[in-house]
Design a protein around this nucleic acid. Structure first.
Lengths: 222, 222
DNA sequence: CATCCCTTTACGGTTTTCCGTAAGGAAGTC
DNA sequence: GACTTCCTTACGGAAAACCGTAAAGGGATG
């Protein structure tokens, strides 16, 4: 079992329950952080003190407040941590069931486990920690494993997401061509852009571009 | 102080912390429900047993799962409870800081307090329960009181919300006229609709309709 | 290097949105 | 009743989005 665990979550309520789960698993040292920046500092401190953390459990979404932070999301934190301490195990922990975001955590950030906050978080978190500790494998609850078969998250690529993101930020199709060129994204002709958006509309059964953005926002793609 | 409190939240993690707050306030009986339907049943049971609850603390958003429920949101639960047991105090409890939704809880549903899940939930919940117990008044944390001065939630009316909602569902401006007529909503001329949408775009600094819907979705207006 | 296949690009016409101007209508004031 | 004011409706031209067709480019294959 893990010896030193850091829990990162901005909602204090969650710490109370998380600590009870870890105590039940006989984890000797459990620390907390409410901000991603603080979390990274603690991880560095542990490393410098020759007492590194061996498990990081982090939320994905953090509320903004008066403090200005470098890292503002769990994704950013995980990326930074993976860069500095590739050895540490990471379990992400979120209320979101947006499959695209979860899949990308495994695919791009290489997390070891994912737990969805819901009606069985206590049991799920326990299972996830045990699985990551013992089998050295990745843990994903049975009810979320569909995301790797799900056609949606496989058929929609990064280019599509980028396009949808620009659309949601108010970039017109007219202006999209030069925006993509600026950003160094290809293809970027007006014609291809039109065709992609049109394909997305068919895919998501959207009646128009506004509808398309609304749908994909609900799905958590953007 | 309250004698019998019901906590309704679908995330089991929150119960652990909530109960510790209430125990610290010496509440003798604390019950839980993970579904709104169950919550209503427990409240009815209490009433029939001549041991009614005197405080309801409820989340607003509930995840859908295999169960089919009558009440699927905190708002629906609060409305039902207010109808059956007007005497009971209600504190809503949510991760959302969407001012429009919170304001409407006070204005339309008459809740007694609101607590936002965040970095100080434990203290805030305690304060809210004490305030509602003692002063018989409504409790809203200082950092949220701006919502009642906030021009946004006062200047945007139900008609605007309706319009934005239809737009997000893919209704074109072209079709909006007849859709509004079908729904019995006035004014419904193409011209007025155009003007309203245009006003909203200026208000929210949106570059086009898609951007407008994206912004207002982020704000929680729709 | 010719061929096929697929993606990207170009173009043109139709529809929808956008935006300004102006007319119509209801309520309130003097 | 004339006038002002505010809201709604009507209309028309410009811009953008939409949609189909066709040409150009870029790999892979034989």
């Amino acid at each position: 079992m893990f010896q030193k665990v850091l829990i990162v979550d901005d909602i204090d309520f969650n710490d109370v329950a998380a600590v009870s789960v870890l105590e039940a698993l006989a984890v000797p040292q459990i620390d907390f952080a409410k901000y991603c920046d603080d979390a990274l500092l603690k991880l560095k401190r542990g490393y410098l003190d020759h007492a590194p953390y061996d498990l990081l459990i982090t939320d994905l979404s953090f509320k903004a407040d008066h403090r200005t932070n470098q890292l503002t999301s769990g994704e950013a934190l995980i990326e930074a941590v993976k860069g500095l301490f590739p050895e540490i195990k990471i379990i992400a922990f979120s209320i979101e069931d947006k499959s695209y975001r979860i899949k990308s955590l495994f695919d791009h950030l290489g997390i070891n486990g994912f737990v969805m906050k819901g009606r069985n978080t206590i049991i799920e978190l326990r299972k996830a920690v045990e699985a990551v500790a013992n089998h050295d494998a990745t843990y994903l609850p049975a009810d979320l494993q569909y995301i790797f078969q799900n056609k949606l998250v496989n058929e929609i690529d990064d280019y599509d997401i980028q396009l949808l993101d620009y659309l949601s930020k108010g970039v017109s199709q007219e202006a999209m061509e030069s925006v993509l060129k600026q950003a160094g994204i290809t293809p970027n002709s007006k014609s291809t852009i039109e065709k992609r958006i049109s394909k997305l509309k068919i895919y998501f059964k959207a009646l128009n571009t506004t509808h398309l953005v609304s749908i994909t926002k609900d799905l958590g793609l953007i």
